[in-house]
Write a protein that binds this DNA or RNA. Structure first.
Lengths: 246, 246
DNA sequence: CGAACTTTTGATATCACTCAAGGGACGTGG
DNA sequence: CCACGTCCCTTGAGTGATATCAAAAGTTCG
């Protein structure tokens, strides 16, 4: 288990893992993130079509980027887990091309455009870490595209579960093999491009093979090695120093 | 037809459309991009696993980002068309998590890390334009994910064709309804997550409906409005001032 | 003119979807 | 504390879109 510093939070831990922040940098980040706001599940933080206004940082809970099709179908294109920040350059655009909403109850900080500007101008270390975050977000998006584009249902789900294990471990929110997963099967379906019925059956298949245990929003990965092989999961795209090298 | 300035190229045209470059900025970019290199089709510019070294700019032809699965399957996660530059911050990472290769014969410029550094430090206007390019690339990736995740075969292909029309128009390489498309049906299959056989049948379906004409690497869109409706294509994610508003 | 690649066609197989309904779990109000 | 509603998970049956395999026809290019 990663030992949590009381003055730390998921965001600081995540950035620190990328660039080894100095104490003043940590203090700066702690000050910015000190008053999180509670947001209920299934609430939009940013809506498609609206002008971007500041940037959101998730400190607890799961949020996502998503789009709605005209037939009502939702597609989730990214998860925002604790420590994740939406794009720092988003102010350059005149309107959002997707929405951001919570999936579970969340602790959220909204960062003002002026603060972002201040970081970009006067905090090179933090800026560097944030740029790396953006690159990793992009790599993750590419990985999801590959996932949906050419893997079977069970493989897609397995890949997603492996990815979340690494991401949550890197912010101290997962044990060696398990983590809280506050998503419904419908959420997973909208993420993987499958129907909820088929997600259900694929999860059962993973359980039947003894790879995972999943109930009441908690997952334990019973056989990580086989699950990784099945999903062809190679964590390098996350650019995290994994504790257990693949 | 967009009238091409002889001192201009696709890259300058693209950036200029985002931020209205000054003459000195255009001159700076012209100087950087003055000696393109010819690269044959199906050649890697950057390989997965290798450390990034400089950044590539496509001035003519089609390239792509792709990954290979262990079973040999390829998935294409982005097209690089004339004017497109791969990520300016890529030097922050220690190794590439995907490959970049040409699909058709290309004119390519390699930009040194020092040049990128110089731009980021001393060319705020250009930097701003490049940051917008990155945001658009990310939005495009999200759109592709939605495409593969929840559209039918014909819709996916239609969407891709609509996107390319807008992107190529923005750099003066498409007429109102047509452009050169130097891709094989296998390339399209690896992009859309379909089999090449099914791409072929879907293209026939689009032809049969009188929506497109496609032969010998040239596509004419015969009924753009219907094609857009079919694909549910909304070009806002490209953040381009389209000549024909949707 | 032949070799290699690309597109097209046909036949069959399969994965995943849809529709429909039953069974839990959880919270709320009586 | 029970009754009820709601949301989520699960199961079954039937369907459909897309994959796979195989081979023919067309194209490109040295």
């Amino acid at each position: 288990m990663i030992q949590l510093n009381s003055s730390s939070n998921a965001f600081i831990r995540k950035l620190d893992a990328f660039v080894s922040l100095s104490e003043p940098e940590k203090a700066y980040l702690a000050q910015i993130t000190e008053k999180p706001r509670f947001v209920e599940a299934r609430t939009d933080l940013v809506s498609e079509g609206s002008p971007p206004n500041g940037v959101f940082l998730i400190l607890d809970g799961f949020a996502c980027r998503y789009r709605l099709r005209s037939n009502g179908a939702r597609h989730i294109s990214a998860y925002l887990v604790p420590g994740d920040l939406c794009d720092i350059d988003v102010a350059l655009l005149d309107q959002m091309d997707h929405s951001i909403g919570t999936l579970s109850p969340c602790q959220v900080v909204r960062i003002e455009p002026e603060t972002i500007q201040d970081i970009l101008e006067h905090q090179p270390g933090i800026t560097r870490a944030l740029r790396m975050c953006t690159l990793v977000d992009e790599a993750t998006l590419r990985e999801w595209l590959v996932n949906v584009g050419c893997r079977s249902a069970a493989e897609r789900i397995a890949h997603l579960l492996c990815e979340l294990l690494v991401r949550l471990q890197s912010v101290g929110l997962a044990t060696d093999n398990g983590y809280d997963l506050p998503l419904t099967q419908v959420d997973l379906a909208d993420t993987t491009g499958l129907s909820n019925v088929h997600v259900n059956r694929s999860l059962q298949e993973l359980r039947r093979q003894g790879l995972i245990e999943l109930r009441s929003k908690r997952i334990e990965i019973l056989d990580l090695s086989t699950l990784r092989t099945l999903a062809e999961f190679k964590p390098s795209y996350l650019h995290v120093k994994t504790r257990a090298a693949a």
